[in-house]
């Protein structure tokens, strides 16, 4: 996949995030890396930066010196107590005296696991350095934050993304029209992973890429997005909104948790009064909690949709 094919291998290859890259380069030069937190929105190069740093530090065989864990998949305390510890406590061979543990989506770790992690970081800091990657650093407990050098990643600039699009198209020998580039930019909102995925999907049709192709492949990939479902409910059509919900869970295999997260992301982008945004966020929180407790996805999310219908009705009446 192009996201991997065109993922930068070295810090020099990275686009944008110049401030961050130069600080990381200084770590390489000193052959010393502190514990770090890489925080920022998706598709802005956090994981890439960690991998590039390792590459530059250890050379081509850098994989032998690092361990990558995804906290969303392995978020329990046992992972920290076993996997992480085992990795962290032995000294590597070679010039650099520590290994690097990359903990992706660390903000999804449980509080317990984070507490355990804090001790591990301290105890084995001689032999292992941790890079914690997160969308929101706020979800990482204070004691860990205070042990880490913070790095704040931001959305890539428009120019940087365009440059990357052209670079890939050249490498793949495909033609892209200006309106195609605009469309990709608009949809991907500075998320480079999304940008490249859209680009590859559009290219798979084998035609020069224009705006129409971009919108059509994105439409096919996300036939009913969560936002559309919410707007349908706000417009008062509960039955249609519920059908869309079924589509998302049954055909596309999204879990209730995936959907409630997206619902929450959308709430504050809706064109509804603030009072309702807060109310809806509260309801989403309750639904989220129930889903974690094991309640039925569709039933709980439907109840949320019914609340959206109610919200839409009240807003129309100016309440």
């Amino acid at each position: 996949m192009w996201t991997e094919k065109y993922r930068p291998r070295t810090l020099d290859e990275m686009v944008d995030q110049e401030e961050i890259v130069s600080r990381l380069k200084s770590f390489v030069k000193a052959k010393n890396v502190p514990h770090c937190i890489f925080a920022g929105p998706p598709g802005t190069g956090k994981t890439t930066a960690a991998l590039c740093l390792a590459h530059d530090l250890y050379g081509e065989n850098y994989r032998e010196y690092i361990m990558e864990l995804n906290a969303s998949d392995e978020r329990g305390i046992n992972v920290v107590r076993e996997t992480v510890k085992t990795f962290a406590r032995t000294k590597p061979m070679g010039e650099v005296t520590f290994k690097i543990l990359i903990l992706d989506e660390a903000d999804n770790m449980t509080e317990d696991a984070q507490q355990a992690l804090r001790r591990t970081m301290e105890r084995y800091s001689e032999t292992a350095r941790f890079i914690l990657i997160a969308n929101y650093s706020g979800r990482i407990i204070e004691p860990i934050q205070s042990r880490c050098a913070p790095f704040r990643f931001t959305y890539l600039s428009r120019e940087a993304v365009i440059e990357r699009i052209r670079y890939i198209c050249k490498g793949e020998n495909i033609k892209i029209l200006d309106d195609g580039i605009e469309a990709v930019l608009e949809i991907s909102e500075g998320d480079l992973r999304k940008t490249v995925n859209i680009l590859q999907t559009a290219a798979s049709l084998g035609k020069p890429i224009n705006a129409e192709i971009v919108y059509s492949v994105v439409g096919r990939a996300n036939p009913y997005d969560v936002r559309e479902m919410m707007l349908t409910a706000l417009n008062g059509d509960f039955i249609a909104a519920r059908s869309k919900l079924k589509e998302l869970t049954q055909k596309y295999g999204l879990t209730g948790m995936d959907i409630i997260k997206q619902i929450h992301d959308e709430i504050f982008r809706l064109n509804v009064p603030d009072k309702w945004k807060v109310k809806l966020a509260d309801i989403a929180g309750e639904v989220d909690y129930r889903l974690i407790q094991g309640a039925t996805d569709e039933v709980q999310l439907s109840a949320m949709l019914a609340k959206l219908v109610e919200a839409g009705y009240e807003i129309k009446r100016g309440l």
Binding site: M1, T3, P42, T47, N70, S72, D104, M257
Partner: peptide, 12 residues
């Protein structure tokens, strides 16, 4: 792709 399973489902 250096992603969690759930993001792989959603994003890739």
């Amino acid at each position: 792709c250096h992603l969690s399973s759930s993001r792989a489902v959603r994003e890739v």
